[in-house]
Amino acid sequence: MSKLSFFLGCIAPNRYPGIEAATIKTLEKLGTELVDLEGASCCPAPGVFRSFDKITWLALASRNVTLSEEMGLDILTVCNGCFGSLVDANNIMKEDPELKEEVNKILKEIGHEFKGTIEVRHIIEYLSREVGPEKIKAAVTIPMDLNVALHYGCHLVKPSKERHLGSVENPRFFDELVEATGATSVDYEDKMACCGAGGGARTAVLEPSLQMAVNKLEHMKAAGVDCIIDACPFCHLQFDVGQTEIKKKFDKVYDLPVLHYSQLLGLAMGLPLNELGINQNLIINEEFNKKIERIRGGANE
């Protein structure tokens, strides 16, 4: 059994706990145990805090990393934003002795020291590299015969010089994981475009941020998909809460259910919808739920 610490971040545990539950359950079935990272804080959010003060951003992220260093475990994140902050901070601290010294002076005051002994992983990158689509396929008990719009999000793959995950224009590794669940990843216009939430935009300039989401949702809807699959609770929130805001502001209705990959994987492993928190979303599409029930029923016959 592989072991990683589970960095929760903010939005997964505090708004979409189904993502947290689904991640623990599905990874366990794949032979990865997730251990609580007690006392972790916000990553901190890359757009806002990195924009405010580099040392604060670096010190907070480094504190989170040291918690896992002290346990001797690599960190797993389920969020592109957390991944971006923690990986970038971890790399900077490993590569820049001056900044490391400056930050360690601060960390010392609160009883920690950054050593540079661990790696930060993202669930999608981890599953792709360490588990692989074949092993996931073997663990699937109910192939999810769905057409899905896959949203990679930005900070999983970019900046590519830091991430080393191949093409940022036409990546495939996440599509392969989705297809391992039996779903079809449908191509759509602007597939690699941003959801519009990041960089503090959703927080401070909501309307243009939502217009970016509208652009994505239009193309997803046009591709005729059953749902959206994402890899980041912030993109998840932007698409889920965003659809209700878009309805009010722009009078546009898409009714597209939003699932984190861990939740799709949970369904494919036979876990029921309500254990995965999928119906705790704001967007609840009865037709989609019926389709899931049909797929599950078919598998049980």
């Binding site: 930005c154 690699m192 939430a197």
Partner: peptide
Amino acid sequence: LWMCTTCYQCQE
């Protein structure tokens, strides 16, 4: 400056 979502597409 604050309209940027830090998607990194320009940088890429």
